[in-house]
Design a protein around this nucleic acid. Sequence first.
RNA 1: GGGCCUGUAGCUUAGCAUGGUGGAGCACUCGGCUGAUAACCGAGAGGUCCCCGGUUCGAAUCCGGGCUGGCCCA
Length: 1057
Amino acid sequence: MIEQVNTKYDPNLFEPEIQQYWKDNKAYELTKEKNQDGPNFYFIDGPPYTSGAIHLGTAWNKILKDLYIRYWRMQGYNIRDQAGYDMHGLPIEVKVEKALNFSNKQDIEKHGIDNFVKTCREFALSSEKVMTEQFKQLGVWLDWDNPYRTLENYYIESAWWTIKRAHDRKLITQAQRVLTWCPRCETALAEAEVEYWDETDASIYVKFKVKNREDHFIVIWTTTPWTLPADLCVAVHPDFSYVLMEVIKNGEKEYLYVAEDLAEEVAKEGRYQEMKIIEKFEGIDLEGLEYEQPLLDEVPWHSAAEQKELYWLHKTVLAEYVTLEKTGIVHTAPGHGPDDFETGVEYQLPPFCPVDEAGKFTKDGGKWAGRFTKNCDSEIMDLLAAKGTLLQSGDITHRYGHCWRCKTPITYRTTTQWFLKVTEMKEKMLEEILKTDWYPDWAGRTRQYKWVENTRDWCISRQRYWGIPMPIWACGCGEKQVVGYLDELEKGKNYTKDMDLHRPWIDKVTLECGKCGGEMTRIPDVLDVWFDSAICSWAQLKYPQEKEEFEKWWPCGWITEAHDQTRGWFYSQLGASVIAFDKIPYEKVLMHGFALDKEYRKMSKSDGNATSPHEIIEKYGVDSLRFYLLVANSPWEDLPFSWDGVKNGNRTLNILWNIYRFSTTYMALDEFDPEKWTYRELENDFRAEDRWLYSRLEKAKSTSKLELEKFNVHKSLRAIEHFILEDLSRWYVRLVRDRTWVEGESRDKLAAFRVLYDALLEISLLLSPFTPHIAEKIYKNLSGKFITIAMENCVTVADERRSDELEVRMKAIRSMVEAILNARQQAQVNVRWPLRKVVAVSSTTVSKKALETYGELMKEQINAITIELVEPGETWEGVKLTIEPVMAGLGPTFKREAVKVANLIKEMNPTEAMNDLEKGHLNVMLNGVQVNLTKEMVQFGQALPEEVISADYSDGVIYIDTVMTPELQAMGFARELIRRIQEMRKEMDLAVEDYISTRVLIKFDVIEGENVLAPEVENIKYNTRSKKFGFGPMEDDDFAKEWEIAGEKFTIGIKRL
RNA sequence: GGGCCUGUAGCUUAGCAUGGUGGAGCACUCGGCUGAUAACCGAGAGGUCCCCGGUUCGAAUCCGGGCUGGCCCA
């Protein structure tokens, strides 16, 4: 039995009910069970980081995942959908440090690594709980009860196996490199862990004195004075032109080496009063020019180094990365920059790095030993100024890297770290990218591809605590062992089965050295947290422990994440998987956008421009949020959040709800039984408009499906939305209202019910992956065949119900109706007052066919007595013909003369022109030459007749005759009365099916006697459910009201029977 | 500085591969409808199609250069 729905759309009332219903009835579990023999599909939930509450972007991400999983489930797929969480790493460490008021590693060590790590674990697990609840609230169906967690032992073992595998393939190495380094966290940072924003730094020009030449200087520019103590050489570009210029300030002469194009600028910066070019060089000519290290006295290391055989020390060298900026000469400290490091390698200079983990100068830093590097900037500048070698100093605002977690400006340090040799696998990775389907295409073909092309080796070691420990044990003899399986630890000391594999406990486990028999201890590093999620496609399957699962599922069928994952998870998975299996671990990728604020700015709590999913749900419900996120724009574009957008989604769902409410009201009243009154049973009772709606429905279904397959999520949902609003609500429901009002069993009414029923049910099926709550709600009432709509099969498109003909004709009818309503408005005759005649002057045969099919329907909609059709080619008397040029037709033939021809056309006699054109000799004189015009070049129109009102429609022009006769007037009054009586019924709060007694008292100012209205009495009675009806004074118990309609005064009295 | 993407009405967008007077929805104003009714329908107003050049009779669309915003990198 279909229940009558008389509540308004209140998602916050029924959405939690539906979620409770799913829980109580194990809807999710049963749906999965139903599909367990279906084709296997491996989906991976890119694990969100357990940092606390979810934001709008995370919500969008999960909703997209849920959409497709629900959609594919409705096609019978057996989908592996384990939720996942990324739980290690610096972000959590930093949060815990802040909570404990720590400021550096010493604080952690004092507190005890075990206590610290325990707190990190607790933080991660409690965040997971909060996040899971929030995801569930979004109606997202994933396997929440058994998520994969990167902190579990099986996961760690999987990581170790992967490292071992890399080691066996000789793809892991220990190397000394210059890396970005956070002086607060005291660890190396990956490129992915650095955030850039503007910072104001010193900007200084320094004169390096050329050796053995009085007053000759090489001028360099830098923003990091503190790197000057580590300066070993200066670089020029081999192909640039350089000059030696003579400059004079206050009568003193100096000679400066700078790039030719920048000479003037440098002279200006140095406030020199005169300058003159003495000599020109190619960059390459300057190689080997020797200078005096400007801080030689303060940093004794340099004098010591000069004693060694370092040929290129304190000389000019060549480098391609030098740009024509500032001076065109770059001071180079191989220990403090990746480029500098390369130059150092090329010129056999050591990566001298007098800076410790905390960013302080070591004793090699000489004068500044023990002091934080950056704090020495001003002192170094003062010193240079005192020595007279500071040419200019000022400030510059430029983009500078910061630690992604603690926001400390990064520094560059030379350290020894472990690397995965991703560069050796680059070709394979590129190949694999092209084997994968990317949506949109450029996300893979260009963006991901180019990123991998420029990849460097992956530094995987971190000098921290909360992470997967590096599985490498080292012996004093130099021997190293990489542990790939836990079994290998059983031979060692202090290992117990099922022990926590994290630091510090794992650090106590020692192994016997296979070479010297000594004791091997674990190197203290942990793995880069990006490595954790990189391996999740096999780690969550507990590979290598459980190989069958891997065989069954791997590789993954589909992933979707935001575009920042090009450098993140898309990349890390690819790298790790190619190293482990020579294969990309996913087959399809949908790259989605970011949720931004309405100004396209990143949402952030600190800027106060963030909108939380929670506050949106509170206002408009989950389905509205889901609808909005999925319909607003293409998934791969950034989404500027707009409250109006959510409101709009809510509005559409509200309209769907109203259609549902309308339908169930009458279905329940008539106890409509969809089992009995099937489509087949009623096949011969459908009206043309019913068949039209079926056709539109099938069209919407097929479009929606097609677009979803192409990941055009927005287009898919827009097709459904369009059907609901345009076809169902704004048109079909309007057409069908009279039919639902009929009392008793009418096959015509039942046919209408069937159409509404099918439309609502199919829309629910279509919508259920997008907005599962309202879909479930409607489904439960209308069908309830399964516990949940999710167990239904995805709608199959019934092509035999499609009819382009019906659609084309209805389009013409709708266009005519709209035109007539428009004309009525111009004439100020509202729809309740009938029109004597409507004339449609058509330009094709569509109108004729449309009126044959839908003429009656149209008459009702526009309230007209007769419709007259003027067929194509014929004219309607009284209509003047007009002629207009068509530029699209004229352009190709007449080119720049087109406008001239257009003006000639405007001056033609339309009737003659039309005749000429039909005979094929419509000509004009253009520049004295006669040219022929074709029918593509002109368009004929019809001018307004005086008495009638006209409006254009899709297939011509419509005219309405507004003359009012007494009969028409009576019909108008009847409709006006019906409307008032209905309003009074509602005021009395009568049920739809209640009967009444009605009396009408007329003043007879306009109407001449009640006989005028007599022919309409039955009509009034029928439409107002008046069992009794009479003219005359009110009775005492009548609910009475006075009305004025079109100048006539009425008193209407009704009472319930 | 580089790579990828983006820019159309106050807001959100369609159109762009294949050039021919730019379509919607929301919001706004006016009007209509009235047993889906805190809904619905119609009309109006609102556009330098980011800017500058080029190709073309004709450019939102094609080409070149710039700018904006996003992500990523240096």
